[in-house]
Design a protein around this nucleic acid. Structure first.
Length: 268
DNA sequence: GCTAAATGTTGAT
DNA sequence: TCAACCTTTAGCT
């Protein structure tokens, strides 16, 4: 269940597992049979990611583009692959190990030019663009949409998902409903820097932890929310800092979480 | 053991 | 606005 850090990790993992090797690619489920036939038997050059998109580059300039969507999952292990079980969209088998893809929204063969087109639709990725704040702010500053909606727009910040959106807004003390055009430059720059910090930490650890050590004890936490988040999936629970009840509301089709105490509406 | 919801996006209506 | 994708897991029983 991935945000940008997950794809970043997968790219590193797949490069380590397959780079330089001739691999066999198959689609036991059948939905990627044609694409698999195009790359099977080629040399796997390298994997890279941008935002929530993953790219596998093969010899000859062919690229496999993967987007995991909401519940796509990529697993891998060293050694020989076992018999396929269930709906296995793509399997890559190399001399050192194998990787299995299930449930992805996108798994397709593209030319490098088509890959460039995919990336060009995306905004800066906080994991890859240290100076992305100004480019993303240009979009934010001329939008009437709530900042919480803009953060989910991959053309504004690629790789940010529902957890990072809720948590970074909380850490900034920013009202999620404030229109983008009412967010000032320094506020956005600081938010971008925090996004980079949170996402890089998630690449390192493999999970999203946004709380600071002093804020991690709170009654009523479910194991799911396990003191790793301030507001994400904590609706109805007391805020770790101010004790106000964390709220939730659907915004742009996703559940938004925020603390009305720490992220107040601005007085006018 | 079962159900519902989930860190996302696309394409049809 | 909504279905599709068709896996995983929390939270029940």
């Amino acid at each position: 269940v991935p945000e940008g850090h997950t794809l970043h990790r997968l790219a590193t993992l797949h490069t380590e597992l397959f780079a330089g090797d001739v691999v066999a690619v198959s689609s036991p489920q059948g939905r990627f049979s044609d694409g698999a036939a195009l790359v099977s038997g080629r040399r796997f050059e390298r994997a890279h990611s941008y935002g929530k998109h993953l790219f596998h580059e093969y010899s000859g300039g062919t690229v496999v583009h993967v987007h995991l969507g909401l519940y796509g999952v990529f697993t891998s292990a060293a050694g020989t692959a076992p018999q396929p079980v269930g709906a296995l969209r793509m399997r890559i088998e190399g001399p050192r190990g194998y990787a299995d893809l299930r449930g992805a929204t996108v798994c397709e063969v593209l030319t490098p030019e088509q890959c460039d087109a995919v990336v060009s639709r995306l905004g800066p990725d906080p994991l890859r663009s240290p100076n992305g704040a100004s480019r993303s702010f240009a979009r934010v500053a001329r939008s009437r949409a709530p900042v919480a909606a803009l953060l989910m727009d991959q053309g504004v910040a690629a790789g940010v998902g529902n957890v990072f959106r809720a948590e970074v807004l909380y850490r900034a003390g920013l009202d999620p409903f404030r229109p983008g055009r009412d967010v000032d430059g320094p506020t956005w720059t600081a938010l971008w820097a925090d996004l980079r910090r949170l996402m890089r930490a998630a690449v390192r650890s493999g999970r999203i932890v946004t709380t600071r050590p002093g804020d991690r004890a709170s009654p009523g936490d479910t194991p799911r929310a396990a003191a790793t988040h301030y507001v994400y999936r904590r609706a109805g629970l007391p805020c770790r800092r101010c004790g106000e009840t964390v709220r939730t509301e659907v915004l742009v089709g996703r559940n938004l979480f925020w603390c009305p105490g720490c992220q107040p509406r601005r007085r006018r």
